[in-house]
């Protein structure tokens, strides 16, 4: 009887633990932290825009992240802000990689 109880108890604890582990992201995302993430995303977007490398949806993602934050959905807001920041960095990197024009090899000059 005791054994059975312990078994059930450990099963429950296990499920609970793994649940906490995967949602721990939510626990340390305070509104202030998300706000910072959004600001960082917007800075990355602006940096890309400064070199003509902004992507289509980055601004929209930041806007949506703000709305989510206001609604209290901090986890989703943080995720989206991080995604937007990544787009900003990639857009900037892409524009930099195109800084010097390389003409395509299939165009033949005489």
């Amino acid at each position: 009887m005791q054994k059975k109880l312990l078994l059930i108890f450990s099963l429950l604890i296990g499920i609970l633990c793994s649940g906490i582990a995967t949602t721990s992201l939510a626990e340390d995302t305070s509104a202030a932290k998300v706000q910072k993430l959004i600001e960082a995303a917007d800075a990355a977007r602006k940096q890309a825009a400064g070199v003509g490398g902004e992507w289509r949806d980055t601004g929209k993602m930041i806007k949506k992240a703000k709305t989510l934050m206001e609604k209290g959905d901090l986890v989703k807001a943080a995720k989206l802000a991080n995604k937007a920041a990544k787009q900003g960095h990639l857009g900037y990197e892409q524009a930099m990689s195109q800084k010097t024009l390389t003409m395509p090899s299939y165009l033949h000059y005489e």
Binding site: L6, L7, S10, L11, G14, I15, C17, S18, G19, T22
Partner: peptide, 18 residues
């Protein structure tokens, strides 16, 4: 036994949660 059950349930939990 308890240890093993715990380990298995952690794994099971992962599948349930993620």
């Amino acid at each position: 036994w308890i240890g093993m059950a715990g380990a298995i349930s952690v794994l099971a939990g992962q599948f349930l949660v993620t």
